[in-house]
C-alpha cells in the first residue's frame, strides 16, 4: 500500500542524509512498525510522506503510483496521517474537529453529505470518543485529545493509517486500547504504519518491524527477527536483554542499568 523505495532524504545543509536508502512496504492487513532511537529518521519518513520534505533520491509509492503524481487531496483520501504533535490555537468541539477529516472529500462549496456524516459517526465510534464529541478540544486530557485526533484520521476514510508516536502521552489502559484498535483496523484490511518507541508493545502487536539506525534500515522482519539483543544493543547503544514475556509470549526488551556493561 505504502512503499518506500531506496528513499534518501537530506535536510538542507546537513552533511548526512536523515533517511538513507530506506526500502520497505506497509502492506494492507498488517501493522508495520518503524522503530529506532531518537534521530534515526522515523519522523523524517512521515514528513517526506506528507511532502514537507523532498526526497533526494528514491520514491514513495501509494499502490504503485509515485507520490509526486498524486494530488494532495487524493493522497489524503487514501492515506490518513496522525502527526506527532498538534495543538489547536482556536478551540473546536471534538466533533467539529473530527469532521475536518472529511476535508479531502469536500468540494469548495458542497455541504456535508450523508456519507460524510456516516464516516464521521463511524470514526467516532471506532476510536471510542463518542462521550467526548460535544466537548471542547481545549478541555480534553492528553489521552482524550490523542484519541480524538485518531478519530479525525479515521474519518478521512483511507485504506492506510500512519501514526507518528501515537501513544506517547497515554496511560497503560489507553495505550493498550490504542494498540488493540490498530490491530483490529489492520485485521479489517487497513495498512497501519506505526512509528513508535514502545518496542515491547510493538513486538506484541506489529506484524512487521523496521528498525532504523542513523537513517538506514538496520533490521526488518517479524518481531522475533528484529527483537534480538545482538541487533538492538548497538543501535540503541545501551545494554539490554531480550526475554520472552511469560504471560503473552512475544519477545520483550529489558534495558539494563548502564554500569553493568
Amino acid at each position: 500500500m505504502i512503499r518506500f523505495e531506496h528513499l534518501v532524504v537530506r535536510y538542507p545543509r546537513a552533511p548526512h542524509p536523515a533517511v538513507d536508502d530506506v526500502t520497505f512496504e506497509a502492506a494492507r492487513g498488517r501493522v508495520t512498525a518503524v522503530v529506532g532511537p531518537n534521530g534515526s529518521g522515523k519522523s523524517t519518513l512521515v514528513r517526506t510522506l506528507l511532502r514537507m520534505l523532498r526526497p533526494e533520491r528514491g520514491t514513495i509509492r501509494i499502490d504503485d503510483a509515485p507520490l509526486a503524481t498524486l494530488d494532495r487531496r487524493a493522497f489524503a483520501r487514501r492515506v490518513s496521517v496522525v502527526t506527532q504533535r498538534e495543538s489547536l490555537v482556536f478551540t473546536l468541539s471534538a466533533r467539529e474537529y473530527v469532521a475536518l477529516g472529511r476535508y479531502p472529500h469536500e468540494g469548495t462549496w458542497r455541504a456535508a453529505a450523508a456519507d460524510d456524516d456516516a464516516a464521521i459517526a463511524r470514526a467516532i465510534e471506532l476510536a471510542g470518543v463518542g462521550p467526548l464529541a460535544g466537548r471542547a478540544t481545549s478541555e480534553l486530557s492528553g489521552g482524550e485529545w490523542q484519541r480524538v485526533r485518531i478519530a479525525r484520521a479515521l474519518a478521512q476514510g483511507g485504506d492506510a493509517l500512519v501514526l507518528d508516536e501515537p501513544t506517547t502521552f497515554l496511560d497503560i489502559a489507553h495505550e493498550m486500547a490504542m494498540f488493540e484498535l490498530f490491530a483490529r483496523l489492520a485485521r479489517d484490511g487497513m495498512a497501519v504504519l506505526l512509528v513508535s518507541h514502545q518496542l515491547n508493545l510493538v513486538a506484541r502487536f506489529a506484524d512487521t518491524m523496521v528498525l532504523l539506525h542513523r537513517g538506514r534500515v538496520a533490521a526488518a522482519g517479524a518481531p522475533g527477527e528484529v527483537m534480538r539483543a545482538s541487533i538492538l544493543e548497538p543501535v540503541y547503544d545501551w545494554p539490554l536483554v531480550i526475554t520472552r514475556d511469560p504471560a503473552v509470549g512475544p519477545p520483550a526488551l529489558v534495558p539494563l542499568r548502564g554500569q553493568t556493561r
Binding site: 514528513r47 506528507l50 511532502r51 514537507m52 494530488d71 494532495r72 487531496r73 487524493a74 493522497f75 489524503a76 483520501r77 490518513s80 496521517v81 496522525v82 502527526t83 506527532q84 504533535r85 498538534e86 495543538s87 489547536l88 490555537v89 482556536f90 475536518l100 477529516g101 476535508y103 479531502p104 469536500e106 469548495t108 484520521a153 478521512q156
Partner: peptide
C-alpha cells in the same frame, strides 16, 4: 472560497499537510 482551507491551516503545518493542503 478559501474558508475551508483556512479551517485546515488553523490546525498547524503538519496536520494541514496530512489533510491534503499545500
Amino acid at each position: 472560497w478559501m474558508g475551508r482551507e483556512i479551517d485546515i491551516l488553523a490546525l498547524g503545518e503538519e496536520p494541514a499537510a496530512a489533510l491534503g493542503v499545500n
